[in-house]
Simulated assay, not measured.
Amino acid sequence: MLEHGGNLRDAAHHYGRDDWVDLSTGINPHGYAAPAPSSAAWHRLPEPDPEFLAAARAYYGAPRLLPVAGTQAAIQALPRLRPPSRVAVSAPSYAEHAYHWNLHGHTQRLVPYPELETAVDASDVVVVVNPNNPTGETIEPERLLDWAARLHARGGWLVVDEAFGDTAPELSVTRYAAQPGLIVLRSIGKFFGLAGLRLGFVAAHERVLADLADLLGPWAVSGPAQEIALQALADTGWQQDAQERLAQAGGRMVQLLQEHGIASTGTPLFRWWPEARPEAFHEHMAARGIWCRLFRDAARGIRVGLPATEGDWRRFEQALHEWNKQ
């Protein structure tokens, strides 16, 4: 299993402390206050709720959507829907994409973002994370739609992972996903802060969605998840407040890092930078009860999410100050 953020139990076991400031994920620390599900949500088999699906289509602007048990479920399933193909995966990016395309007989290669344009015509499938996790790199929608059309002309796919797309709606191509050749992944976990629901969506042509639904089987999304997400997706007031709050907190993080000599990239939910000594930085923070995300390979560096409280902000600022004094 690949390494991910959020593994606080491992951190507590290794360092022997339980007072963590968790900056290891890009999950909104002030997520949607989940209502208590109805008793029916617990006791009935979770058939798809039309109101839930309508709320999701309205929020994402997508003509067709398939709810899945987190975008991870789709990431693992999509490579099983194609014969052996030439697959280009944007790099560095969320490692699960390359890992699963590599498991199912495909010829997979990692392609840096500046080289993706030339990779389109030499590939059957191109996978792009937009905005990228962890670096925050972006690609404008017009280029993505052009790539999707070129790939479709050869029976190919463009897979766009927009798990962090809520804070950059101008980049989204979800509303175009009914056209053949384009597959878009969206997540409830990041912007809404509801990672524990294990809920995501796939927007794509109806044939792809039907094949994916057959592969994943019935009852892929629980009844409680559907009820909670229905309210979150329809709550436009909370969404507007969250956008403003995240923009403010994200700007604060950029400024804080700059004050300590760190030039970062990312989104309002996380920042990343190519740290010269990432292992040492990670260890320095962990010794002070701050859990950040260490990247050792192509994205060698550090990623931090947003602190949840003023006390957490102060602890992180103090740890940065102590790092700079070394």
Rank of each mutant, 00 (worst) to 15 (best):
P131Q: 12
P131N: 08
N132P: 06
N132R: 09
N133S: 07
N133L: 08
P134R: 02
P134A: 06
P134I: 03
T135C: 03
G136A: 10
E137M: 12
E137K: 11
E137S: 13
T138F: 01
I139N: 05
I139Q: 14
E140T: 07
E140F: 01
E140I: 01
E142I: 10
E142C: 07
L144H: 07
L144P: 10
L145E: 12
L145V: 09
L145I: 07
D146P: 09
W147V: 03
A148H: 02
A149F: 03
A149D: 13
A149W: 05
L151N: 08
H152T: 05
H152C: 10
H152Q: 15
H152K: 10
A153E: 15
A153Y: 08
R154H: 14
R154L: 09
G155E: 06
G156L: 04
W157D: 14
L158I: 09
L158E: 10
V160I: 12
V160S: 09
D161I: 00
D161Q: 00
D161N: 12
A163L: 01
F164I: 02
F164R: 00
G165E: 06
T167F: 02
A168G: 04
P169Q: 02
E170I: 02
E170M: 07
E170T: 13
L171S: 09
L171Q: 11
L171W: 06
L171N: 12
V173G: 05
V173S: 04
T174G: 06
R175F: 10
Y176S: 14
A177V: 09
A177T: 10
Q179L: 05
Q179W: 06
Q179G: 11
Q179N: 09
P180G: 09
P180Y: 10
L182A: 11
L182W: 03
I183G: 14
I183D: 15
V184D: 04
V184R: 03
V184N: 05
L185F: 14
L185S: 10
L185P: 12
G189Y: 03
G189L: 11
F191G: 13
F191A: 13
F192K: 06
F192E: 06
G193E: 01
G193V: 01
L194I: 05
L194M: 15
L194Q: 12
G196D: 14
L197H: 04
L197Q: 03
L197A: 07
R198M: 02
L199D: 13
L199V: 11
L199Q: 12
F201Y: 15
F201A: 13
V202S: 13
A204W: 06
A204K: 05
E206V: 15
R207F: 02
R207A: 14
R207T: 15
V208D: 11
V208Y: 00
L209V: 06
D211V: 00
L212E: 06
L212N: 04
L212Q: 08
L212V: 07
L216D: 11
G217W: 13
W219L: 13
A220M: 02
A220W: 00
A220T: 08
V221R: 00
V221A: 00
S222A: 11
P224G: 04
A225Y: 02
A225R: 05
Q226M: 12
E227P: 03
E227G: 01
A229R: 00
L230P: 02
Q231C: 02
A232Q: 11
L233D: 08
D235N: 10
T236S: 13
G237S: 11
G237L: 07
G237K: 03
W238C: 04
W238I: 09
Q240F: 02
Q240M: 05
Q240P: 01
D241W: 02
A242C: 13
A242I: 00
E244W: 07
L246D: 07
